[in-house]
Amino acid sequence: MTAPMKTFRQRTAWIAWIAYPTLAVALCLGLWEALVRINDVPLYILPKPSDFLARLVVDRTTVLAQALATSVSIALGFGMAVLVAVPLALAIISVGTLERGLFPVIVFLNIMPKTVIGPILIVWFGVSPAVAVFIVFLMCFFPILVDSMSGFRATDPRLRYITRSMGASAFQTFRYVRLPAAMGYIFAGMKIGIVKAVEGVIIAEFIGSSAGLGFMIMRASSFMDMELMFSGLIATALVALVFNGAMLAAEKFLMPWNRPRHA
Protein backbone atom coordinates (compact mmCIF):
# COMPACT_ATOMS: atom_id res chain seq x y z
CA MET A 1 0.00 0.00 0.00
CA THR A 2 1.61 3.26 -1.10
CA ALA A 3 -0.76 6.10 -0.30
CA PRO A 4 -1.89 6.39 3.32
CA MET A 5 -5.51 5.35 3.72
CA LYS A 6 -7.89 8.03 4.80
CA THR A 7 -10.05 7.05 7.71
CA PHE A 8 -13.81 6.91 7.35
CA ARG A 9 -14.08 10.04 9.47
CA GLN A 10 -11.67 11.96 7.18
CA ARG A 11 -13.50 10.86 4.06
CA THR A 12 -16.87 11.92 5.38
CA ALA A 13 -15.67 15.17 7.00
CA TRP A 14 -17.05 17.31 4.18
CA ILE A 15 -20.54 15.90 4.72
CA ALA A 16 -20.53 17.17 8.30
CA TRP A 17 -19.03 20.44 7.08
CA ILE A 18 -22.07 20.98 4.88
CA ALA A 19 -24.69 19.15 6.91
CA TYR A 20 -24.36 21.00 10.23
CA PRO A 21 -24.76 24.56 8.88
CA THR A 22 -27.58 23.42 6.58
CA LEU A 23 -29.32 21.78 9.51
CA ALA A 24 -28.91 24.92 11.65
CA VAL A 25 -30.35 27.18 8.95
CA ALA A 26 -33.21 24.76 8.30
CA LEU A 27 -34.03 24.67 12.01
CA CYS A 28 -34.13 28.48 12.22
CA LEU A 29 -36.35 28.77 9.16
CA GLY A 30 -38.56 25.95 10.41
CA LEU A 31 -39.01 27.69 13.77
CA TRP A 32 -39.79 30.97 11.98
CA GLU A 33 -42.33 29.24 9.73
CA ALA A 34 -43.98 27.52 12.70
CA LEU A 35 -44.19 30.66 14.86
CA VAL A 36 -45.69 32.74 12.05
CA ARG A 37 -48.23 29.99 11.26
CA ILE A 38 -49.19 29.34 14.90
CA ASN A 39 -49.62 33.03 15.69
CA ASP A 40 -51.24 33.71 12.35
CA VAL A 41 -49.04 36.77 11.64
CA PRO A 42 -50.32 38.62 8.57
CA LEU A 43 -48.10 38.72 5.45
CA TYR A 44 -47.70 42.53 5.53
CA ILE A 45 -46.07 42.29 8.99
CA LEU A 46 -43.82 39.25 8.60
CA PRO A 47 -43.77 36.80 5.68
CA LYS A 48 -43.09 33.10 6.24
CA PRO A 49 -39.89 31.60 4.84
CA SER A 50 -42.05 29.53 2.50
CA ASP A 51 -43.55 32.79 1.15
CA PHE A 52 -40.34 34.64 0.33
CA LEU A 53 -38.35 31.57 -0.70
CA ALA A 54 -41.12 30.73 -3.19
CA ARG A 55 -41.04 34.34 -4.37
CA LEU A 56 -37.28 34.11 -4.81
CA VAL A 57 -37.80 31.15 -7.12
CA VAL A 58 -40.70 32.71 -9.05
CA ASP A 59 -38.95 36.08 -9.57
CA ARG A 60 -35.50 34.57 -10.02
CA THR A 61 -34.75 36.35 -13.31
CA THR A 62 -35.51 39.81 -11.86
CA VAL A 63 -33.65 39.12 -8.62
CA LEU A 64 -30.70 37.64 -10.49
CA ALA A 65 -30.49 40.66 -12.83
CA GLN A 66 -30.54 43.08 -9.87
CA ALA A 67 -28.02 40.97 -7.95
CA LEU A 68 -25.78 41.08 -11.01
CA ALA A 69 -26.09 44.89 -11.20
CA THR A 70 -25.17 45.13 -7.50
CA SER A 71 -22.23 42.76 -8.00
CA VAL A 72 -20.90 44.85 -10.90
CA SER A 73 -21.03 47.97 -8.70
CA ILE A 74 -19.18 46.15 -5.91
CA ALA A 75 -16.56 44.72 -8.27
CA LEU A 76 -15.90 48.09 -9.96
CA GLY A 77 -15.75 50.12 -6.75
CA PHE A 78 -13.69 47.52 -4.93
CA GLY A 79 -11.31 46.97 -7.84
CA MET A 80 -10.69 50.70 -8.19
CA ALA A 81 -10.11 51.02 -4.44
CA VAL A 82 -7.45 48.26 -4.54
CA LEU A 83 -5.77 49.74 -7.62
CA VAL A 84 -5.51 53.18 -6.03
CA ALA A 85 -5.00 52.33 -2.33
CA VAL A 86 -2.12 49.83 -2.60
CA PRO A 87 0.22 51.98 -4.75
CA LEU A 88 -0.74 55.06 -2.74
CA ALA A 89 0.12 53.23 0.50
CA LEU A 90 3.57 52.42 -0.90
CA ALA A 91 4.09 56.03 -2.01
CA ILE A 92 3.04 57.38 1.39
CA ILE A 93 5.38 54.99 3.22
CA SER A 94 8.27 55.75 0.89
CA VAL A 95 8.06 59.54 0.96
CA GLY A 96 8.17 61.06 4.45
CA THR A 97 6.66 64.39 3.44
CA LEU A 98 3.73 62.63 1.82
CA GLU A 99 3.06 60.73 5.04
CA ARG A 100 3.14 63.86 7.24
CA GLY A 101 1.04 65.86 4.77
CA LEU A 102 -1.53 63.28 3.80
CA PHE A 103 -2.05 61.38 7.02
CA PRO A 104 -4.35 63.95 8.72
CA VAL A 105 -6.44 64.11 5.54
CA ILE A 106 -6.66 60.32 5.43
CA VAL A 107 -7.67 60.13 9.08
CA PHE A 108 -10.35 62.79 8.51
CA LEU A 109 -11.77 61.07 5.43
CA ASN A 110 -11.60 57.71 7.17
CA ILE A 111 -13.71 58.74 10.16
CA MET A 112 -16.23 60.61 7.98
CA PRO A 113 -19.33 58.46 7.30
CA LYS A 114 -19.06 57.78 3.57
CA THR A 115 -22.78 57.72 2.88
CA VAL A 116 -23.17 61.45 3.62
CA ILE A 117 -21.57 62.10 0.26
CA GLY A 118 -24.50 60.28 -1.45
CA PRO A 119 -26.75 63.31 -2.06
CA ILE A 120 -23.78 65.23 -3.50
CA LEU A 121 -22.99 62.32 -5.80
CA ILE A 122 -26.61 62.32 -6.99
CA VAL A 123 -26.14 65.95 -8.04
CA TRP A 124 -22.95 65.04 -9.87
CA PHE A 125 -23.89 61.74 -11.50
CA GLY A 126 -27.71 61.76 -11.37
CA VAL A 127 -29.58 58.72 -10.09
CA SER A 128 -27.34 56.05 -11.54
CA PRO A 129 -25.15 53.06 -10.58
CA ALA A 130 -22.16 55.44 -10.63
CA VAL A 131 -23.27 56.67 -7.19
CA ALA A 132 -23.06 53.13 -5.83
CA VAL A 133 -19.68 52.49 -7.45
CA PHE A 134 -18.27 55.66 -5.94
CA ILE A 135 -19.60 54.92 -2.45
CA VAL A 136 -18.24 51.36 -2.61
CA PHE A 137 -14.90 52.84 -3.64
CA LEU A 138 -14.86 55.16 -0.62
CA MET A 139 -16.01 52.44 1.79
CA CYS A 140 -13.24 49.99 0.82
CA PHE A 141 -10.53 52.50 0.09
CA PHE A 142 -9.52 53.42 3.65
CA PRO A 143 -9.26 50.01 5.27
CA ILE A 144 -7.18 48.82 2.30
CA LEU A 145 -4.98 51.92 2.41
CA VAL A 146 -4.36 51.79 6.16
CA ASP A 147 -3.65 48.05 6.24
CA SER A 148 -1.41 48.24 3.17
CA MET A 149 0.58 50.97 4.88
CA SER A 150 1.07 48.72 7.92
CA GLY A 151 2.07 45.94 5.54
CA PHE A 152 4.72 47.97 3.75
CA ARG A 153 6.06 49.07 7.14
CA ALA A 154 6.16 45.54 8.49
CA THR A 155 9.48 44.44 6.99
CA ASP A 156 12.24 44.10 9.61
CA PRO A 157 14.79 46.85 8.89
CA ARG A 158 17.62 44.35 9.37
CA LEU A 159 16.25 42.43 6.43
CA ARG A 160 17.31 45.47 4.41
CA TYR A 161 20.88 44.75 5.50
CA ILE A 162 20.57 41.23 4.17
CA THR A 163 19.09 42.26 0.82
CA ARG A 164 21.68 45.02 0.45
CA SER A 165 24.45 42.52 1.10
CA MET A 166 22.96 40.58 -1.82
CA GLY A 167 23.28 43.70 -3.94
CA ALA A 168 19.50 43.92 -4.40
CA SER A 169 18.08 46.95 -6.23
CA ALA A 170 15.16 48.87 -4.73
CA PHE A 171 12.84 47.15 -7.19
CA GLN A 172 14.18 43.69 -6.31
CA THR A 173 13.73 44.39 -2.61
CA PHE A 174 10.14 45.40 -3.34
CA ARG A 175 9.40 42.48 -5.64
CA TYR A 176 11.06 39.73 -3.57
CA VAL A 177 10.61 40.98 -0.01
CA ARG A 178 8.37 43.95 0.69
CA LEU A 179 5.38 43.16 -1.52
CA PRO A 180 4.99 39.50 -0.51
CA ALA A 181 5.58 40.47 3.14
CA ALA A 182 2.79 43.05 2.87
CA MET A 183 0.33 40.68 1.17
CA GLY A 184 -1.16 39.36 4.41
CA TYR A 185 -1.90 42.92 5.54
CA ILE A 186 -3.29 43.93 2.16
CA PHE A 187 -5.64 40.94 2.24
CA ALA A 188 -6.72 41.80 5.79
CA GLY A 189 -7.67 45.27 4.51
CA MET A 190 -9.43 43.84 1.48
CA LYS A 191 -11.45 41.44 3.65
CA ILE A 192 -12.68 44.34 5.79
CA GLY A 193 -13.21 46.35 2.60
CA ILE A 194 -15.40 43.77 0.89
CA VAL A 195 -17.74 43.57 3.91
CA LYS A 196 -18.07 47.34 3.94
CA ALA A 197 -18.55 47.33 0.16
CA VAL A 198 -21.66 45.15 0.37
CA GLU A 199 -23.04 47.34 3.14
CA GLY A 200 -22.23 50.52 1.20
CA VAL A 201 -23.60 49.37 -2.13
CA ILE A 202 -27.05 48.62 -0.71
CA ILE A 203 -27.30 51.98 1.06
CA ALA A 204 -26.13 53.75 -2.10
CA GLU A 205 -28.75 51.92 -4.12
CA PHE A 206 -31.40 52.89 -1.59
CA ILE A 207 -30.68 56.58 -2.04
CA GLY A 208 -29.50 57.05 -5.57
CA SER A 209 -29.67 54.24 -8.05
CA SER A 210 -31.93 52.94 -10.76
CA ALA A 211 -30.68 49.37 -10.52
CA GLY A 212 -29.45 46.76 -8.06
CA LEU A 213 -30.80 44.89 -5.07
CA GLY A 214 -30.97 48.02 -2.90
CA PHE A 215 -33.09 49.70 -5.57
CA MET A 216 -35.31 46.61 -5.85
CA ILE A 217 -35.82 46.44 -2.05
CA MET A 218 -36.62 50.18 -1.87
CA ARG A 219 -39.18 49.88 -4.67
CA ALA A 220 -40.71 46.78 -3.02
CA SER A 221 -40.95 48.82 0.19
CA SER A 222 -43.02 51.52 -1.50
CA PHE A 223 -45.44 48.80 -2.64
CA MET A 224 -45.40 47.11 0.81
CA ASP A 225 -44.20 44.00 -1.03
CA MET A 226 -42.85 42.15 2.02
CA GLU A 227 -42.08 38.95 0.13
CA LEU A 228 -39.85 40.68 -2.40
CA MET A 229 -38.09 42.69 0.33
CA PHE A 230 -37.21 39.50 2.17
CA SER A 231 -36.17 37.88 -1.11
CA GLY A 232 -33.87 40.87 -1.65
CA LEU A 233 -32.46 40.39 1.84
CA ILE A 234 -31.61 36.76 1.11
CA ALA A 235 -30.15 37.70 -2.29
CA THR A 236 -27.97 40.42 -0.68
CA ALA A 237 -26.65 37.93 1.86
CA LEU A 238 -25.87 35.51 -0.98
CA VAL A 239 -23.99 38.25 -2.90
CA ALA A 240 -21.98 39.02 0.23
CA LEU A 241 -21.26 35.32 0.66
CA VAL A 242 -20.04 34.99 -2.93
CA PHE A 243 -17.68 37.98 -2.62
CA ASN A 244 -16.34 36.76 0.71
CA GLY A 245 -15.76 33.32 -0.75
CA ALA A 246 -13.97 34.84 -3.75
CA MET A 247 -11.71 36.78 -1.36
CA LEU A 248 -10.81 33.66 0.58
CA ALA A 249 -10.15 31.74 -2.65
CA ALA A 250 -7.95 34.56 -3.99
CA GLU A 251 -6.05 34.64 -0.71
CA LYS A 252 -5.46 30.92 -0.80
CA PHE A 253 -4.31 31.13 -4.41
CA LEU A 254 -2.04 34.18 -4.07
CA MET A 255 -0.63 33.32 -0.65
CA PRO A 256 -0.11 29.56 -0.63
CA TRP A 257 2.43 30.00 2.17
CA ASN A 258 -0.24 31.15 4.63
CA ARG A 259 -0.45 28.95 7.68
CA PRO A 260 -3.78 27.14 7.96
CA ARG A 261 -5.88 29.00 10.48
CA HIS A 262 -7.30 25.98 12.26
CA ALA A 263 -4.13 23.89 12.34
Partner: peptide, 20 residues
Protein backbone atom coordinates in the same frame (compact mmCIF):
# COMPACT_ATOMS: atom_id res chain seq x y z
CA UNK B 1 29.80 50.78 -0.28
CA UNK B 2 28.15 47.60 1.06
CA UNK B 3 30.18 44.57 0.02
CA UNK B 4 28.30 41.74 -1.59
CA UNK B 5 30.96 39.04 -1.13
CA UNK B 6 29.49 38.42 2.28
CA UNK B 7 26.93 36.32 4.15
CA UNK B 8 25.18 37.70 7.21
CA UNK B 9 23.41 35.86 10.03
CA UNK B 10 21.61 37.73 12.78
CA UNK B 11 20.23 36.52 16.10
CA UNK B 12 16.78 36.41 14.53
CA UNK B 13 16.74 34.12 11.54
CA UNK B 14 15.16 36.87 9.37
CA UNK B 15 13.86 34.28 6.94
CA UNK B 16 11.01 35.30 4.66
CA UNK B 17 7.95 33.54 6.03
CA UNK B 18 6.35 33.36 2.59
CA UNK B 19 9.17 31.23 1.20
CA UNK B 20 10.05 27.64 1.95
Amino acid sequence: KPITEVGIVFQDHLLLDFRT
